[in-house]
Amino acid sequence: MRSNLETPRSPLALKLAAGCSLLFLHVPLCIIILYAFTTEEAAFTFPPPGLTTQWFSQLANRGDFWESLWLSIAVATTATLVAMILGTLLSLALYRSNFFGRDAISLLVILPIALPGIVTGIALRSAISLTGAQFTFWTIVIGHATFCIVTVYNNVIARLRRTAHSQVEASMDLGASTWQTFRYIILPNIATALLAGGMLAFALSFDEVIVTTFTAGQQRTLPIWIFDQLTRPRDRPVTNVAAVFVIAVTFIPILLSYRLTASTRE
């Protein structure tokens, strides 16, 4: 084995393996993008007989699509804002203090993202039903915020731990109140981490299906709209176009958040 590892063929094999993994991950995405332009309506053949942009205009005329898209954007934006506020407060509370049970609390904060969505979903549905509340836009936001808080919290607390606490003391020493210190010293220090966490949260919320099915009433977010489309084979290319939208809307924030925290990972 050892001698095999030392031969120059091994790195090549590793490269091939890595390449295959990448293909495995991304070929389906490429197929979706490709067949958003196909001229066929239902049965797909490879290569597509022709390319067209007619599905884009067809999708543009679907009122239910626009409704779902806006709902998704509204939910993701609201959940992200809630998560940014709560996640920042949580990380501020936990990064400096050292009390009994701190690690347990920190685990509890991270748990929603590790927990299967179906468990979060059913737990939220039971809890909301118990209060007798209707399933509305706000119940979806609450459901999404549970896991959005995690990404914000993780990003912000990592940045806070790397920020010298003496800066906070220096600010107080120079006459700044707690709020002024937060506004002028802490916030600028954590800004990019907060934004990055928020963008990841947005991307997570935007394509969430499982928790949404449990916490939504009659509302259909975009992923659920796409899911429903599967039962209508003749709409397949239109659905692909919608999927391309989802890819674009989630990919851009993830890319930006990666750039924003690039300096953190050096």
Binding site: Q167, E169, D173, P188
Partner: peptide
């Protein structure tokens, strides 16, 4: 009395300059 209400100022060991 909190630090911001005391008529003293501090030069910190690590300087604690605001990097931004």
């Amino acid at each position: 009395v909190p630090p911001y209400d005391r008529d003293v100022n501090t030069v910190f060991q690590d300087y604690a300059l605001f990097p931004h």
